[in-house]
């Protein structure tokens, strides 16, 4: 079964499956222990190293399973974990498991432009005002009409001494927003990179002077970014291209890493994101097989009742018109061949003397004949006329 087409072959909206977009991705940590080596951590010894790769690895045989920061002696002191996802994803959740007592302040950010700019998704703190200058999140979600980064309670410590940071994109968005119909929500869930900022460890006091009394280190594992490869409803899977980049396996006449534009020649109507009820496939221009290129014209699209806006370019086989649907001047439509046939248009072939011009009727092929001349190409004298010696009046009445 093709998720992007129904049983009859008609396009329908489709989305890739929910995956952990962080799995196997490189994590950039601003601090990692083991350089220089200490008693507890040695970056050059695989048995005692705690690299950031442990945050997104599938797990396995290595003894240490947790990333660990350098020993830090000041708070607040931000340690950041950044995960480039490789392409745009539509987030569902983000989670991070702490291997020791979870921090009391954590910020979660996202980028939509591969790390050039960052916006917050949420904050998690017992001191929202102190660390982030925000009020604690209202119990019923954002006060405004759109999603916003709220300050939620700090990650809860668990009986095993660790803790879990868990964030759902729904946490920051008002109830009732639908992804298909809300561009604001679509923007909110889109991310190319995720960044976790560990701001304040748990064991330190919450004093404003924030001097640390003892060295500490952050430690975490299982950084998960649950989401769907963003394909705008036009692909059911993402694949790696020849350069190893993740791209959507675009359908519906679309192309691009996120299927965010129409393929060349598929511009009979403007690109749109697919929804659950309408595929909004990009349509090929109707050029009757006589052109390889076309362009979109918004005015024509509006005039057609938002039906068709493609204009064929460089019609071949002596055709002309917006859809290469009629014959160019000097040619006429040959009814013996289909409009899509390369022989659909035949040269008028008007007689250089008998015809009054070179352009024939586009439907019948009849050339304009001089007086007394007849025939489709005006190459014979009509009954009652005979050929003269004058090329201006080639046929004269028979005496």
């Amino acid at each position: 079964a093709d998720p992007c087409h129904d049983e009859g072959g008609a396009p329908r909206g489709c989305v890739p499956g929910l995956v952990n977009a962080a799995l196997g991705r490189e994590v950039l940590a601003s601090s990692t222990c083991g350089r220089p080596a200490t008693r507890a951590c040695d970056a050059s010894d695989p048995r005692r190293a705690h690299p950031a790769a442990l945050l997104t690895s599938a797990g396995g045989t290595a003894s240490p399973v947790c990333w660990r920061s350098d020993s830090l002696t000041q708070a607040p002191l931000n340690v950041t974990l950044t995960v480039p996802l490789g392409k745009a994803f539509e987030l569902v959740f983000v989670s991070l498991r702490f291997c020791s007592t979870p921090p009391t302040s954590v910020a979660l950010l996202k980028s939509q432009d591969h790390g050039r700019s960052w916006v917050p998704l949420g904050f998690f703190s017992s001191r929202c005002g102190l660390d982030y200058g925000r009020l604690p999140a209202p119990t019923n979600g954002p006060a405004g009409p759109g999603p916003e980064a709220l300050c939620f309670p700090e990650p809860q410590a668990q009986p095993d001494g660790g803790g879990l940071l868990a964030f759902s994109v729904q946490d920051g968005s008002p109830p009732g927003l639908d992804l298909d119909s809300s561009p604001v929500l679509q923007d909110w869930v889109t991310a190319t990179d995720i960044r976790v900022v560990l701001t304040r460890p748990a064991m330190l006091g919450y004093t404003r002077d924030s001097a640390a009394m003892a060295p500490y280190a952050y430690s975490a594992t299982e950084l998960q970014v649950g989401g769907r490869c963003k394909c705008n409803g036009h692909a059911s899977q993402c694949l790696q291209d020849t350069q190893g980049h993740l791209i959507c396996d675009c359908r519906h006449g679309t192309e691009g890493a996120d299927c965010s534009r129409c393929k060349p020649f598929y511009c009979d109507r403007p690109w749109q994101r697919a929804t659950a009820w309408e595929a909004h496939a990009c349509l090929a221009c109707d050029c009757n097989g006589h052109a390889r290129r076309c362009r979109f014209n918004m005015e024509l699209y509006r005039l057609s009742g938002r039906h068709s806006g493609g204009v064929c370019l460089n019609c071949r086989h002596n055709t002309a018109g917006r859809h290469c649907h009629y014959c160019r001047e000097g040619f006429y439509r040959d009814p013996g061949h289909a409009l899509s046939d390369r022989r659909a248009c035949r040269a008028c072939d008007c007689h250089p003397v008998g015809a009054a011009g070179k352009t024939c009727n586009q439907t019948t092929g009849q050339c304009p004949c001089k007086d007394g001349v007849t025939g489709l190409t005006c190459n014979r004298c009509a009954p009652g006329f005979q050929q003269s010696r004058s090329p201006v009046a080639p046929c004269v009445k028979t005496p």
């Binding site: 007689h351 250089p352 003397v353 008998g354 001349v373 007849t374 025939g375 190459n379 014979r380 004298c381 009509a382 009954p383 006329f385 050929q387 010696r389 004058s390 090329p391 201006v392 080639p394 046929c395």
Partner: peptide, 23 residues
Amino acid sequence: EVMPTLDMALFDWTDYEDLKPEV
């Protein structure tokens, strides 16, 4: 009655040299 096709050789182009089609 089907008349014969126009015979280009019968035309006198003396006064209409500029109208004479290229052959």
